[in-house]
Computed example of a mutant assay.
Amino acid sequence: MEASEEKYLLHRGLLLPRETHTADSLTFAHEFELRDDDILAVTYPKSGTTWMQEVLPLVLNGGDLTPVQTIPNWDRVPWLEETRLAIVAERLPTPRALVSHLPYHLMPKSLDSSKAKVIYVSRNPKDVMVSSYHFHKMASFLDDPGTFHEFMDKFLQGKVLFGKWTDHVKSWRHTELGDRILYLTYEEMVQDLRGSVRRVSDFLGRALDEEAMERIAAQCCFNNMKTNCMSNYSLVPQDIMDNSKSPFLRKGVTGDWRNHFSAEQEAQFSAVISREMEAEELSSSLWCPEPSPPAHQ
């Protein structure tokens, strides 16, 4: 089943939802002038974007909870490529924090000419796919995902939002940003959120005391974010995102793929990802984790 032209636009080979993207918003993103003190958190969809929209404001303002409790995350740390940025860009506090799902080659030219920093968060693609599958079920502006196996085939072919996972990860592993980019994984954040927040604060040159670190880590734990209406997308009308079908912030765990993949599906999925990532100097543990008990059929 091909993607619906009514719901998606095709931009440089990538499927993007028309609900939040237009030709004008993509031009605005391409021409956006990044400042030297801007920070971009970049992810493939369903890899920790909402988490970074919570972490970044708190790290940048020393742990003041006000913005994450009073400003919706899409205005607090807006997407570079979405329509909302043109509306809120001028009122963002300095330093500005943005998020993006774009691959490296579609970044604004000003990324290379500025000193802006990037935090790239990656996640096991099996968990990414499971999360995306459930997201498609609850978001009316996306096509019905079909069966789990049908969606897996589309995911592996890159016929999903923002293209192939492997292409996205590889694009951000081959940049000329040097020490201006920090690589994190979703799994690291789940395992040691406080340590991950510390890495972010050190990367951004923020000297946070222990009390601020504890406050940020506590606020950014999954259960707190899940109940924060400024972060859990419950403010979005139900006819656009139906949280009764699947909550936007669903589980916040690692390894949920084991509850969805059959042994045959896991083997097929891992074979494709491993082949496409073969030349990368990236630990295969990201996409081929330790042997696990048989998945639920």
Rank of each mutant, 00 (worst) to 15 (best):
A212W: 04
S270E: 15
Q297W: 08
V118Q: 04
G163M: 07
T66G: 02
E278S: 09
L208W: 02
N232R: 01
L193S: 06
L56I: 12
I273N: 00
G255A: 11
E188C: 03
I273T: 01
V42L: 09
V130N: 00
G252E: 05
G178W: 05
L15M: 09
K7H: 11
N73H: 14
R96L: 13
R123N: 11
V160F: 05
V68F: 04
W74H: 06
Q297F: 12
P72L: 14
S270R: 03
K164G: 02
D209T: 02
A89K: 09
S246H: 13
D256T: 03
T70N: 14
L56P: 01
A89D: 07
E264H: 05
E280V: 04
S270Y: 06
Y183F: 13
D24M: 09
S284T: 12
P95I: 15
R258S: 15
F269R: 01
L193V: 10
D36M: 12
G63P: 01
D153T: 13
R84D: 04
D36Q: 06
S270C: 15
A3I: 11
T227Y: 07
F203T: 02
D239A: 09
A3K: 12
S244T: 14
P103I: 06
L193D: 06
D38I: 12
S292M: 08
K137C: 11
W257L: 10
A86D: 09
P289R: 00
S285K: 05
H11K: 07
V130R: 01
T254R: 01
R96M: 12
P57H: 15
A271I: 06
P289C: 09
A218N: 08
V200Y: 01
M129D: 03
S131W: 00
Q53I: 13
W165G: 03
P289M: 08
G62R: 09
E264W: 04
R18H: 12
D167V: 07
L65I: 08
P103K: 03
T66V: 06
R206C: 13
N259I: 08
D144T: 08
H101D: 06
N61G: 05
D256V: 04
R275E: 12
H296M: 13
S131R: 01
P72A: 10
C221M: 10
S114G: 10
V42W: 03
V88R: 06
E290S: 13
S131C: 12
L282G: 02
A86M: 10
D242H: 01
A218T: 14
Y104T: 11
E214T: 14
A217F: 08
S231D: 11
T254M: 11
H134C: 11
E266C: 14
I39A: 06
F155L: 07
E150A: 15
R250K: 14
F269C: 01
L182P: 00
V160Q: 03
K245Y: 09
L106S: 10
E82W: 07
Y186M: 01
S262N: 05
P145C: 07
T254N: 04
N259P: 01
E6G: 10
D192G: 03
M277A: 07
Q268P: 00
L40N: 02
E31C: 09
A217G: 05
S246P: 03
H149K: 13
F151C: 05
M213T: 03
N228A: 05
M152V: 08
E266L: 10
H149Y: 08
T147D: 07
D24R: 14
H260A: 14
